[in-house]
Design a protein around this nucleic acid. Structure first.
Lengths: 117, 117
DNA sequence: GAGATAGATAGCTGTATGGCTAACTATTCT
DNA sequence: AGAATAGTTAGCCATACAGCTATCTATCTC
């Protein structure tokens, strides 16, 4: 069985890691409604600005958010394409599983007198 | 604007966090092919068993994998339903974004003489 | 140009995460 | 019963992460 090299998968690491935090998911929720400046994004959260900026950096590192400076304001936007990629990644395994003929195994396990579940 | 309470979102935290590691994603890839015992799942990885078990725990904590003991062997299986949930979570924002009338904004930004991208 | 505003950077801290070894439990095999 | 197999638990260590304050830069507004 192969080696599952983790060399080029760091992009996925960063993307999923970015999603693993409620604050960051909240930011995505806001951005789904449209572009927004940092200060407006930070508003709902009870944390210091530098802390919030770190979260934004994590989101950008994961490719989920991009931003550009407009004067002294930084405008952020959702990278929907990246979300789509992650969605597809998930779908791949979800469907591989569903496509399996484990339906039969399922049936057998469900009716196995030795089962303890 | 609301508060984005992070109280009940810890399930999503755990699930996405579980996906943020190449080893754990590799395990999902294996499980997509069908149920497998711990030792077989651990085989491709160059790490001590206890370390690998931790990864499995993270996957279970995230609801992505379930397991049951069959004698001294622990059989693991993919929780495709959970993957589907995550997929749906992502889709929600991806589509909210796409549905936006930001298409117009996009056009304006693309043709903005002040842009620096 | 002075002051306010928006964000960025540096540096510190506690906790979580990922890795290990050593030692232990529970099954199965002979 | 005794040895081998498959996990499990406990405990240690280094690094990464999320939070903070204090300070600094850049850009508007008067």
């Amino acid at each position: 069985m192969a080696n599952y090299s983790s060399s080029d998968s760091s992009a996925l690491n960063r993307a999923f890691h970015a999603l693993g935090d409620a604050t960051r998911r909240g930011v995505l929720a806001q951005l789904a409604l449209g572009e927004a400046p940092v200060s407006k994004l930070a508003e709902p959260y009870d944390m210091a600005l530098p802390t919030f900026l770190q979260h934004l950096k994590v989101l950008e590192a994961g490719g989920l958010v991009s931003s550009r400076k407009k004067g002294r304001v930084r405008l952020c936007r959702l990278e929907a394409a990246r979300l789509a990629e992650l969605k597809n990644w998930i779908t791949q395994y979800e469907q591989a599983w569903s496509a399996r003929l484990d339906r039969l195994d399922d049936f057998l396990n469900e009716n196995d007198p030795n089962k303890d579940t």
